[in-house]
């Protein structure tokens, strides 16, 4: 039995190197599990803050990107999934902030109106 190892053909070496490179390229992007969870919770927070009412465009965009991120994850396109999830997160966060600032502005308007009415009332009462 011939047990001597022949040095491999240079062509074969090149092919192995190329293949391993391609595999490494794929494997260097891990599944963005944590990012997916963070984005999902950001969307839930935005929805409960009233994002659907006060920032419908950002809300829809966040939801849409999250859907696409899930699809990319299913196809093991981890890089796309991460990017989409990250964008969904900032969209959701913007929607949440927009809802909060709109509510605060509304409260300020109501407060100032109350103050005006109170002043008027007092001025009427005491000449």
């Amino acid at each position: 039995m011939n047990t001597t190892l022949r040095p491999p053909n240079p062509r074969t070496l090149l092919a192995i190197a190329a293949a391993s490179l391609a595999v490494a390229g794929c494997a260097s992007v891990p599944a963005p599990t944590e990012q997916m969870a963070v984005s999902k919770s950001a969307i839930a927070n935005a929805a409960s803050a009233g994002g659907g009412e006060y920032a419908s465009i950002e809300m829809r965009s966040a939801q849409d990107k999250m859907d696409r991120a899930n699809a990319a994850l299913a196809k093991e396109d981890f890089e796309s999934a991460r990017w989409l999830a990250e964008e969904a997160q900032v969209d959701a966060r913007l929607a949440e902030k927009k809802a909060q600032s709109a509510k605060a502005r509304k409260a300020a308007l109501v407060m100032n109106e109350d103050l005006r009415v109170l002043r008027e009332e007092i001025n009427r009462k005491s000449p």
């Binding site: 966060r93 409260a107 300020a108 407060m111 100032n112």
Partner: peptide
């Protein structure tokens, strides 16, 4: 770009909250 918008909305929210407090 979205984070800049978030910063802007945060500032608007705080401004409105300050206005509420001062009106109160």
């Amino acid at each position: 770009k979205q984070q800049v918008a978030i910063a802007r909305e945060t500032a608007a929210q705080k401004e409105a909250e300050l206005a509420v407090a001062s009106a109160g």
